[in-house]
Amino acid sequence: MALTFARRTLGAVVLAVACCVLPAAARAEAADAGQRAFDRGDFAEALRVWQQRANAGDPHAQLGMGALYDLGRGVAQDATAAFGWYMRAARQGLPEAEINVAVMLDSGRGTPHDAEQAALWYARAMLRGNHRAEYDLAALYASGEGVPRNLGTAVALYRAAQGGGLTAATARLKTLQPIAPSAGVAAQSLTAATPLAPSGDVTPGNAPELVWSTPEQPLPVLYFVEVVGLDADGWHNVFTSYADLPAALADLPAGPGTYAWRVYTVARNTLHYAASPWTGFRVQAESSAPGPE
């Protein structure tokens, strides 16, 4: 007795689902001919349009190219090429691309497994509002994969994911027991965080994503980030912020500039802190931004 049903309609439904799930940011571009072609299943046309725009630096088109290669639509399936396109879009701060880069580094799809880089890209996606990235980064901190094992940070990240509606975080929080504060020895044993990004050249046009990793601390902490601008006259403060999670978006002046940043690990209930080393980065002028690779 066969109880299979909806097989004929399944294809149509799957296609309908496919048409509804491209990123909101990409869909917001009503004039995106590539998106329209993709929606109607004309993958060759989507490829033609997106390739042109992607090569011109459009991150949404680069994300679309990544999807075509990821799924093998209009091109032969090629996870490595997909990763490359996702990475180009991610470097421009597109959240969907950032989480895709993270999960592919995490799973070793299209690129060698690299948990440290995965953690970095999860953090970047988190800064752009992706709650899945909070949950996944929490898992890395809970296990010590790619980052120092830090249950306090894992708890903070799971709570953030929980606040974003990921109910699995609630169950995870029940299983985690952060190390209890140990009075007395705590103040002298704070460990400075390790800046992960940015360093070197930064793609202009988006607020730089400051990301650091931090080991378990003996008492509750928060972070204080400081960015200074460097010019011929010396240095001047351009951005400071407190953060509960190990990342922050730096709101910098428009245009090119050379900067240095560091992060303080600050005890919540004492005056003690530990400062990371300074890390330099440079925001290039728009016209001198690196082109497609």
Partner: peptide, 19 residues
Amino acid sequence: DEALLDKAARLYRDGQPIV
């Protein structure tokens, strides 16, 4: 098996019609 679900979730990519 909760960890397996975590693993599956960490394979999912945004912005594409993956099912």
